[in-house]
Design a binder for these strands. Structure first.
Length: 561
RNA sequence: GCGCCUAUAGCUCAGUUGGACAGAGCAACGGACUUCUAAUCCGUGUGUCGGAGGUUCGAGUCCUCCUAGGCGCGCCA
C-alpha cells in the first residue's frame, strides 16, 4: 500500500509534471524529456513542507534563468486536491510547497489499522535475499567482531523482511581445511598431555582453555581409550566431537543474543559433494584458471585484483577461497537473487577476488554485496580493554550479554554505520540513565503503556483513531510527532535497501525524543474528553511505531520500567 | 611501496544519495516534579566539514593530488 508520504508526494509531483508539460505545449519552455527532478523535504522548516529543484535542472536545457523557469512552472501549476496551501519561489530557483497540516492526520488511522505491520512495505517485491553473517570459526568463542556482525546481520535481515524481501539468514561453518587439521592436532596434544604423555603442542595450535575443557570432557566419558587408536582416526573423532560441542555453544550464544538462523551451511559438504572440483572445472573451461608451480591459480587480476590467487595448493588440497567460490555458486543455484555477506574489515582484500570469481562464473557481481564492518574497541572506566588471548582478558559475546544485557549490546552495535569504528562504552551501556539511548527509547514505550494503564484504572476506554477529532491535535509537539511517524515506512525501506540499520537506531531515538517532549508539555488524560481521545490516538500510534522500531532492532519493548 | 576504509563542534557520531543559514547526543552552565514514571523536559554556543585544486547555477557529499590514522597485500582463514 502506498504510504501517506508517497501519496501526498506523488500528487504534487504529478502537478509539477503537468505544469511543465503545459508550459511546453504553450511554447513557453522547450525541453525534450523532463529531467529527473526531486521533491524533497527541505532542511529548513521555513522552506516549506516540500521543495522541488525542477527549475534549476530545466534551466540548464532551456538556457533561461532558473528563477524565470520556476515562475513559469509556478504559473501553470494546478495543485488542487494536493493539500498544497501556499507556494513560493525561493533561493536559486526552488519552488517551495507549504501544505495544510491536515494532510498528516491520515497516518494515525493508518497506523491503527496496520498495527505492527506499519512500516512494512513491498519495496523488495519478494526478491530472494540471503544474509550471511558471523560465520565464525567453530574452533573458538564468539568475540566482539562476531557480536557486531551478529547484531548488524540480524537487524539488516529484519529490515529487509519488513521491506518486502524474502530473506534467509545463513551461517557458514568453516569446518574444513587447514585450521581444522590444526584444531584436531591441538585437541590430540591436549588429550595426551592431560593423560600424562609428554607430547609437543602444535606451533600454531589453539591455546585456549576451552579446548582443554573439551578434552577433559572426553576423558571423563571415555577415559584413555583413544591413546592407542590410530592418530588419523583419533583426530577425526576429536574434531567431530569438539566441533559439535563448539557449534552448539555458538548457537546457544547467538540465540541468547536474539539471533536465529534459517540455515547452517557446512563447508565440509562442499568438499564431500565434489562441488569444489566441479566449480574449478567450470572456471577452467571458462579460462579463468591456470597452473603454475604445481598449484592452480584463479586469474583474479583479470577482475581488478592486485594478484592472482591460489585455489588448489601444490599438495593437491583446495584453499578456503576455492570453497568460497563453490559456496557462492551454491547460493546462486539455490535461487537467491541478492547475496549479502557481512565481513570484518580485515577481510577487505578478499572482496575483489570473490566478486571476480562470481563474475567469472557468469553471475552479476553486483548481486553480491559485501558489507565490511570496522572493528570494535571496548571501553571500561574510560580505558580501552586490550583483548588478547595471551593476556587472558578476552571478552566474549556471552560475557558482554551478561554484563550489559542483550538490549544494550544490540543497540550499541547497530547505532553506528558499519564502516565507522565502534567505541563500545561498557559503563554507558550498563547505565540506567538519561545518557543511555536504549533506556531512553524503551522509556518512551513504557511511559505510554503507563498512561494507558492509568486510563484503564479509571475505567476509561481506548478510542479508535478514525472516530477521533484529530484536528484537535495542533500543538507543535503533537504535529512534530505525527510528522515523524509518517516517515517510518520510507525510513525502514531506505535502511533496508542501503543496508544501513543505524538509521533505524537513530530514528527510534529521535521518535522517542519527540514523544518525551510532547509528554512533558501536554497531558494526555484531561478533562476534555474529545481532546483526551485525540491524544490517546496519538500516543497509541506512537507506542506502535516505537514498539515496531524496537522489534526491528531486536530489542524488547518493556511495558514498565 | 601498492590497495581499501576513515577524517564534520571539546568528545562520540549523523548528514535525506549534488540543494538553500552544516545537525544530534554527551560534556558545561541555568531552570522545570502537590498533576499520566524527573530513566524525562526546557533554555544557553560551538565549526578553516583534514589541506589544496577541479567539475557546476550549487560541493560536507563527485574527481585529482597531498597529509594523518586504521586495515590488508601467505600455496592462513
Amino acid at each position: 500500500m502506498e504510504s501517506v508520504l508517497e501519496s501526498v508526494k506523488s500528487g504534487i509531483i504529478r502537478a509539477i509534471t503537468g505544469a511543465a508539460e503545459k508550459a511546453r505545449a504553450e511554447g513557453k519552455i522547450d525541453f525534450e524529456t523532463l529531467p529527473e527532478f526531486v521533491l524533497e523535504v527541505p532542511r529548513e522548516k521555513g522552506h516549506g513542507d516540500f521543495a522541488t529543484n525542477i527549475a534549476m535542472l530545466l534551466a540548464r536545457h532551456v538556457k533561461m534563468q532558473p528563477r524565470r523557469v520556476a515562475e513559469m512552472i509556478n504559473e501553470y501549476l494546478d495543485t488542487a486536491g494536493t493539500w498544497v496551501a501556499r507556494r513560493e519561489i525561493a533561493g536559486p530557483g526552488f519552488i517551495n510547497f507549504f501544505l495544510d497540516s491536515g494532510w498528516m492526520y491520515a497516518v494515525l488511522p493508518r497506523i491503527e489499522e496496520q498495527g505492527n505491520r506499519y512500516g512494512s512495505s513491498d519495496t523488495g517485491r519478494g526478491k530472494k535475499v540471503q544474509v550471511e553473517f558471523v560465520s565464525a570459526n567453530p574452533t573458538g568463542l564468539l568475540h566482539m567482531g562476531n557480536a557486531r556482525g551478529a547484531a548488524l546481520g540480524d537487524t539488516m535481515a529484519s529490515l529487509l523482511q519488513a521491506a518486502g524481501f524474502d530473506v534467509s539468514r545463513e551461517f557458514y561453518i568453516n569446518d574444513a581445511g587447514n585450521q581444522i587439521e590444526n584444531f584436531g592436532k591441538s585437541l590430540e596434544a591436549r588429550y595426551l598431555q592431560q593423560l600424562g604423555h609428554e607430547v609437543p603442542f602444535p606451533e600454531d595450535g589453539y591455546h585456549g582453555q576451552d579446548i582443554i575443557d573439551t578434552v577433559t570432557g572426553i576423558i571423563k566419558n571415555d577415559g584413555d581409550k583413544y591413546v592407542d587408536v590410530d592418530p588419523v582416526l583419533r583426530r577425526e573423532f576429536f574434531i567431530k566431537h569438539a566441533l559439535e560441542e563448539k557449534l552448539n555453544a555458538i548457537k546457544r550464544s547467538l540465540e541468547n543474543f536474539g539471533v536465529k538462523y534459517d540455515n547452517w551451511f557446512s563447508e565440509q559438504t562442499l568438499h564431500e559433494s565434489g562441488a569444489i572440483d566441479k566449480v574449478l572445472d567450470e572456471l577452467r573451461e571458462r579460462g579463468s584458471i591456470y597452473e603454475n608451480d604445481n598449484a592452480l591459480w584463479f586469474k583474479s587480476t583479470e577482475f581488478g585484483d592486485e594478484k592472482d590467487e591460489v585455489v588448489v595448493r601444490s599438495n593437491g588440497t583446495p584453499t578456503y577461497f576455492a570453497a568460497d567460490i563453490a559456496y557462492h555458486k551454491n547460493k546462486f543455484e539455490r535461487g537467491f537473487e541478492w547475496l549479502i555477506n557481512i565481513w570484518g574489515a580485515d577481510h577487505h582484500g578478499h572482496v575483489r577476488r570473490l566478486k571476480g570469481a562470481v563474475e567469472a562464473l557468469g553471475y552479476d557481481p553486483d548481486n553480491l554485496d559485501i558489507v565490511l564492518m570496522q572493528l570494535v574497541r571496548l571501553f571500561r572506566d574510560g580505558e580501552i580493554i586490550r583483548m588478547s588471548k595471551r593476556s587472558g582478558e578476552f571478552v566474549t559475546l556471552d560475557d558482554l550479554v551478561e554484563e550489559v544485557g542483550r538490549d544494550a549490546a544490540r543497540y550499541f552495535f547497530v547505532m553506528r554505520s558499519a564502516d565507522s569504528h565502534l567505541d563500545f562504552d561498557m559503563d554507558l551501556a550498563k547505565s540506567q540513565s538519561t545518557d543511555n539511548p536504549v533506556y531512553y527509547i524503551q522509556y518512551a514505550h513504557a511511559r505510554i503503556c503507563s498512561i494507558i494503564r492509568q486510563l484503564e484504572e479509571k475505567g476509561g476506554a481506548l478510542p479508535e483513531a478514525r472516530d477521533c477529532n484529530l484536528l484537535l491535535l495542533k500543538e507543535t509537539a503533537e504535529m512534530d510527532l505525527i510528522r515523524k511517524m509518517i516517515d517510518f515506512p520510507e525510513e525502514v525501506s531506505e535502511a533496508a535497501v542501503n543496508l544501513e540499520p543505524h538509521r533505524i537506531a537513530r530514528y527510534a531515538h529521535e521518535l522517542a525524543g519527540l514523544f518525551h517532549s510532547f509528554y512533558n508539555s501536554h497531558r494526555v488524560i484531561v478533562e476534555d474528553r474529545e481532546l483526551q481521545d485525540a491524544r490517546l490516538a496519538l500516543v497509541i500510534s506512537t507506542r506502535t511505531v516505537v514498539g515496531r522500531a524496537l522489534e526491528l532492532l531486536g530489542l524488547t519493548a518493556p511495558e514498565s520500567m
